[in-house]
Design a protein around this nucleic acid. Structure first.
Lengths: 340, 340
DNA sequence: CTGTTAGCGCGTTCAG
DNA sequence: CTGAACGCGCTAACAG
């Protein structure tokens, strides 16, 4: 096997005991080290190219310095969240173990094992907006696992989540559209079939729309259509458009709807931005900026949410914040104006 | 501190010694355990809810069961690669530590520390096609680190990489376009400025184009334009299109070019798929499927490449393949036909 | 054939 | 600043 440089080697070379090496490296309170000794140790470390074995340290300390990030890898928003999360963790000397799935919720429960195996010190998951599994929440509490849900458990006070204010975001979108067009905005609500139903976020958006319209003395006009990625019902969207009074202003809860409208405009030779002004309240497919013309939207600031999740998780493991404190962390939306 | 169940507890409860617990769990060769004892141990484990401390095991074994995945998180292709990589690792009981960057190449060198700290057993990186940093290659070799580059070190035999055959992929695209249109295909080559230059992959594509054209008795017609995401020179693209004989067939090395052509068509009221048939040889922005109409392309199978990388890395750590064996791993391209 | 013992791997920590 | 114990599991050598 590879010969490894240990703290013992360093200690010997520097003429001190191993405890000192550790103390120098960690500035251990309670062990004072003279400047010369410290220098000698550092030099020995340098010359021998010594690195602590993080597994040995982890074992002693009972911490792994790793967090698990769980989420659906097909969802680009998860990855955006990951960016913020990872960045913050790295700064704090923490590491991110990636546990992606494709819808497989059972995989989530394996994280419990990882925790008990001491492979991870905590968990962040990017969940669906309506996610609120009770069994999982319980497992987390019973095992006293530092845990944050991004987007999930919106209405469960006992689980710490990072959430955006969907209602406010809708109003911001409407403010923008109104200032831009002065047309009474139509709300195009897309839902994922088969039956009409809205998740928590979309209910908030809907509320926001209705409130805003009333506040502005306008008459709420809403429509809804089922999402269907495989066979979008093109003609249906075309006819929706045909019946609109032009110029029209439309807000979609999902960019999916905006895309369908772009398509229908293409078909009818209508000009986006002129005949029909469109805005989205998300960027699920991450293509808003690539559409022609680019699609403005109020978007969920996932990167920032990841950072906040990391921050709170770190507070949990350091004990700065008690695990019992599950106060929701709220973030404002981000208005992305893309029309040139 | 949390009281932890250790192998000692299990051993006591089962009335055996700790060595047996380990043997039962790992089917250690050389230690035979009777069926009854084995059952007793398993039951004790079950009842006490015992899990091995992976850090303790890792320390003893000198392995962490973790690989690092390094790459640019802004690049969706990295994430695709990750999916395949992670899936394969998980199946083999390995874990993936995520080290994303935003261009920061210095961060890469910190992976060396992670390895020496025994936090990781190997590294995979998603690199740019032209990546071939000599210093990094040396560091890897000197430290004897199991390492795979996806897309990088195309011409360095001493580093193990997973690569696609760009030349062949271009020919496949042309076959498709030819069968579809029977127009002589024009090659639109995009490069990232400021001066005209091609990376390895694009040189291969160019070669493929030229060979194919000659094989088909056609006259190669190539153009090139600089990529500029901030201020795409719209009028330039419009004039390119204006000068084409219609109907035209165009292959772009990057989907960026295809997007510009879509845009120009939009401007000129030309119909994609009819007046101008376009195809791309990549999917860097991951928007091909979302374009209107969807853009067909030959794409790099990153998921599969990730899986292959994981596979080889595992072979390295198990010793099934020697670190000295750096044979390139080649994968075929994937033809994605998206026109309806 | 079945099981035990003791030492190891490596860094941290606390009493002296 | 030192010495020794500790955290936890693995395994070679050894014993019944």
């Amino acid at each position: 096997m590879q010969k490894r440089v240990t703290s013992f080697d360093v200690a010997r070379k520097a003429g001190v005991s191993r405890g000192v090496v550790s103390a120098v490296l960690n500035q251990t309170a309670g062990i004072r080290v003279s400047e010369e000794t410290r220098a000698a140790v550092l030099q020995a470390i340098e010359e021998l190219g010594y690195r602590v074995d993080v597994q040995a340290r982890g074992m002693r300390l009972g911490r792994s310095q790793c967090f698990a990030a769980f989420g659906n890898m097909d969802n680009p928003l998860f990855l955006q969240m990951l960016q913020g999360f990872q960045k913050h963790c790295t700064q704090a000397g923490y590491h991110v173990l990636l546990y992606g799935t494709d819808q497989d919720e059972a995989a989530r429960y394996e994280l419990l094992e990882m925790f008990r195996e001491r492979r991870i010190d905590g968990i962040v998951s990017k969940d669906a907006t309506q996610y609120a599994d009770e069994a999982w929440a319980q497992a987390i509490q019973e095992n006293k696992i530092p845990y944050i849900s991004v987007d999930g458990y919106a209405e469960n006070e006992a689980v710490c989540s990072v959430l955006m204010d969907y209602k406010a975001s809708m109003k911001i979108a409407l403010d923008h559209i109104w200032q831009k067009t002065s047309s009474s905005p139509i709300y195009m609500e897309v839902y994922s079939g088969p039956a009409y139903s809205l998740n928590w976020g979309d209910r908030q958006r809907r509320l926001g729309y209705e409130e805003w319209m009333i506040e502005h003395g306008l008459n709420p006009t809403t429509m809804n259509r089922m999402r269907n990625d495989r066979e979008p019902n093109r003609s249906e969207w075309v006819s929706i458009l045909r019946e609109m009074e032009l110029p029209a202003a439309v807000v979609c809860n999902w960019s999916y709807g905006a895309r369908r409208i772009y398509e229908a405009c293409h078909e009818l030779h209508l000009r986006i931005g002129k005949d029909v002004y469109v805005m989205a309240a998300d960027n699920t497919e991450q293509v808003n900026a690539y559409m022609i013309p680019p699609l403005s939207a109020v978007e969920v600031p996932y990167r920032q949410m990841g950072e906040l999740a990391a921050q709170r998780l770190l507070q949990y493991v350091t004990g700065d914040v008690s695990l019992a404190d599950t106060t929701t962390i709220r973030v404002p939306c981000r208005l992305e104006i893309r029309e040139n």
